[in-house]
Simulated scan of single mutants.
Amino acid sequence: MTTAPSPFPAPDSAPTDRGAVPAATSGRREFPFERRHFDFIAHMLYQLAGIALAPHKIEMVYSRLARRLRDLRLGDFDSYCALLESEEGANEVGFLVNALTTNLTSFFRESHHFDFLAKTAVPEMRARHAGESSHPRLRIWSAGCSSGQEPYTIAMVLASSFGPELRRWDAKILATDIDTHMVDTARRGVYPADLANSIPAPLRDRFTRRQREAGEPMVAMEEELKRLITFKPLNLLERWPMKGPFDAIFCRNVLIYFDRVGRTQVIGNFARLLEPGGCLFLGHSESLYGVSDRFRQTGPTIYRRL
């Protein structure tokens, strides 16, 4: 079959391998989905969010966006791509980013990070700031907070480590994500009850409460935690409004979606905003090797700003 010239050509800089995805796959799907559609969507996501869609993600892209075509009552991906390019497509662009952003997270995920935070980083923060004022300042950033389990875990660690003393501290956790729907979910702080099983029982008993919604068991985060956290949408490749400095930054399983230029830019900005000696926590498959010389590694995917 001969494929017609694409009305949505991907520029040469589009982060895809042109030989890795079939040119047309309309015979197997509800909507015709050709390589030109994937290239256009991949390039738009890269331009908007710095996320490089690998060619093996074609099935994921199709399945997540096919549902959107049904909701919009569009007959094909040509119409959807045209919508994204139109003036009326501004809101749809936001949906595209939300739909294609992976949001896998859990409470106390990669627990060695939180052991280090409780046993090493928090005592250092207390020693560093304790004599600064009657309300010492402490700032931690969860960059790529997804549905919120990470910042709530950080808040549990702070609250349990400081105890009643935390009331005299100006302690805040900033939690950001590019996916606005995830930010709304995180801000609400209510999850299916089984997701709380990864929270150690003493902390679960203290910082969560059971409730039911539509007959389903749920767990809600206590206000004590919510008061510590500010949730905001943020694209890490756009201008950052915050000035820092931060005592610690968690950015786990986010850098893997950026190309080398994007990773270098983000890590450089983290170094600028972190206190000297401040900690940067990355995901289990991420590394600063060849990306930055402004950090030294102090543990598995734990780095200190020089």
Rank of each mutant, 00 (worst) to 15 (best):
R187Y: 13
T176P: 01
Y289I: 10
S142N: 00
R239K: 15
P300Y: 03
G144M: 05
D17K: 05
H112S: 10
R294E: 15
L280K: 14
I173V: 13
G215I: 11
K226M: 11
A130T: 02
I41E: 03
V261R: 15
W240K: 02
D259Q: 01
E275K: 12
F270I: 08
Q211H: 10
F38E: 13
R187Q: 11
Q47D: 07
L255H: 08
S142K: 02
P151C: 10
L138Y: 00
R210S: 11
D76T: 03
L158S: 02
A24S: 12
I41P: 01
P241Y: 11
T120R: 15
P15Q: 08
D205E: 14
P15K: 13
S292T: 06
S79Q: 15
H43Y: 11
A54E: 09
D71K: 14
D71C: 03
L225N: 00
R227F: 07
V219M: 15
F231S: 12
S161A: 15
E213H: 14
A130Q: 14
T153P: 10
P22C: 01
F295E: 04
L104Q: 09
D177N: 14
L84E: 04
S147F: 06
E59T: 15
F162D: 12
G244N: 10
S146Q: 04
L203H: 13
L306A: 08
A10I: 06
V266T: 05
M218Q: 14
S13G: 03
A14I: 08
C251I: 10
A14P: 12
I173F: 11
P233W: 06
G131E: 10
S147N: 13
P245S: 12
H135A: 12
H181Q: 15
E110N: 09
P11L: 09
N269C: 04
S133V: 06
N269H: 08
D39H: 14
Y191L: 12
Y289S: 11
P200L: 02
L166K: 01
R227G: 11
H129L: 00
R187D: 12
G89I: 05
A49G: 10
M156R: 05
H284M: 05
Q265H: 13
L48Q: 13
G50T: 11
L45Q: 06
V219A: 15
N91C: 04
R29W: 06
V21G: 14
N91T: 10
R29H: 07
D293P: 00
G278T: 15
G215S: 08
A24E: 15
R204E: 10
A143D: 02
A186L: 13
V266A: 11
A143Q: 09
E223N: 13
V122T: 09
E150K: 00
L255R: 09
E222H: 11
G268M: 01
Y80V: 12
I58W: 07
P276D: 06
R70M: 07
L166T: 01
D39F: 02
A23T: 07
L158N: 03
S63L: 03
T208W: 07
L195Q: 09
A196K: 08
I229H: 02
T264D: 11
Y257C: 06
S86A: 13
I256S: 09
R168E: 05
E150I: 00
H113T: 02
A271V: 05
I140T: 06
